[in-house]
Design a protein around this nucleic acid. Structure first.
Lengths: 225, 225
DNA sequence: CCTCCACAATCAAAACTCTCATAGGTAAGA
DNA sequence: TCTTACCTATGAGAGTTTTGATTGTGGAGG
């Protein structure tokens, strides 16, 4: 497993590198966004730990450019503690997960493991789960030869589910990530969009469906592969 | 957000509980280490505020045992004085953060926020007893390839039993933990849910069953392993 | 060994809650 | 103006919880 760590705080970066090395990861550590992008563009890594605040190029920019270059390596983004909007921005730029500093090293390792074993693969600019393909650039959802266009909200909601297929995503999380952390959107909004999405899944005759966990949230039901 | 407060100084404990309740936390307050451990073992909390000096079991012991039982709820430990050894000991025993008394309530709230913010999605946390697997995220109960959905109450009741397999859980405890400490639920409610659960255990053809101790409560009967 | 009683288990209906799906309304952009 | 995307309201329906009545059972005392 190869990991790229892009973090300008040297002490933190070195510590991370060492700890991950102890966990049998092969690590490369760089200290600015430009280097980070160069290294990452090689596509040789299994996961990238990417700070947001970086010299030369910030983390969002790095993530965006990577995705643009069809590099699909999973990205775990590190955001500064009080910058909540960063989380949303991070996901929008193509990050797969985020953590706020200060973080627990054990949790970081757990999330890295989660990213490397994840089933929803980002291939080029698309997310895949089961027989579904979500094209990130056009916001089109395809299955076989059929395809439908998704609205922004539909797209964002579905993406949340597709990033971790089978994992239950709480409604409140969906609201936080799609509508914003301090939004007043209600559960009903999510329900409405889930309903729209289900209709489209049915239309596409996909083998994946959206499951409900009462009083909690939703998950993607993907047939055993 | 659910918070467990374990603190033997009643006045402080109550005050904390009230303040956190005002901050929209759902709080449970207990006054000794043994209760603290029992409550915490349910894994239902998002953070635990844990005093070190406690009757029955001290805070270190509680933290150790929790980690041993693979309960990963973040722990904020309260140490009596500015005793350096305590801090180290606390972190060694599995605490995630510590504060020394007397502390500023605002700082405590800030630290609790920090701890809860790093909560990742819990993927695949489960309770096991005999051939039964209780999936915490989906509230599904599995045995072999069969699986059933549990309602909220069913789930909560069963979880109480599964935390300590073979241990007798008094009905009043079940009521306190599932319906709330000051609820008006009657014994019959518990009996009804036990009945529901037994039906589902039968359906699953599990080797685990629910035993009755007359006038006291219930326990999980798990075949000798 | 039998009887009785208190407690436990079960059942079914009522009360309640949450989810789903649809329709109507609003705002922004073509 | 027309279209598109989004939000809100609503009611039907499904699922959950409570309630009260009825039936079953273990064990103490006769």
């Amino acid at each position: 497993m190869r990991v790229l760590i892009v973090e300008d705080e040297r002490r933190l970066a070195e510590a991370l590198g060492q700890i991950m090395a102890e966990q049998r990861y092969q690590t490369d550590v760089v200290y600015d966004g430009a280097d980070g992008l160069d290294y990452a563009l090689t596509g040789q890594y299994d996961v990238i730990v990417l700070d947001v605040m970086l010299p030369k190029l910030d983390g969002f920019e790095v993530a965006s450019r990577l995705r643009h270059a069809h590099v699909s390596t999973p990205i775990l983004m590190l955001t500064a503690r009080d910058e909540m909007p960063d989380k949303i921005a991070g996901l929008d730029h193509g990050a797969d997960d985020y953590m706020t500093k200060p973080f627990d090293i054990g949790e970081l390792l757990a999330r890295v493991r989660a990213l490397t074993r994840r089933q929803g693969e980002v291939i080029g600019e698309q997310l895949v789960a089961g027989d579904l393909i979500l094209e990130l650039s056009t916001r089109c959802l395809r299955r076989g030869d059929k395809s439908v266009r998704l609205g922004f909200k539909e797209f964002d909601v579905l993406r949340q589910l597709m990033v971790h297929p089978r994992a239950v995503v709480p409604k409140e999380d969906i609201i936080a990530r799609v509508w914003g952390l301090d939004s007043e959107a209600e559960d009903n909004n999510v329900e409405v969009y889930i309903s729209f999405l289900r209709k489209k899944l049915t239309f596409l005759e996909s083998n994946v469906s959206i499951g409900t966990v009462r009083k909690v949230g939703y998950y993607l039901e993907v047939p055993a592969s």
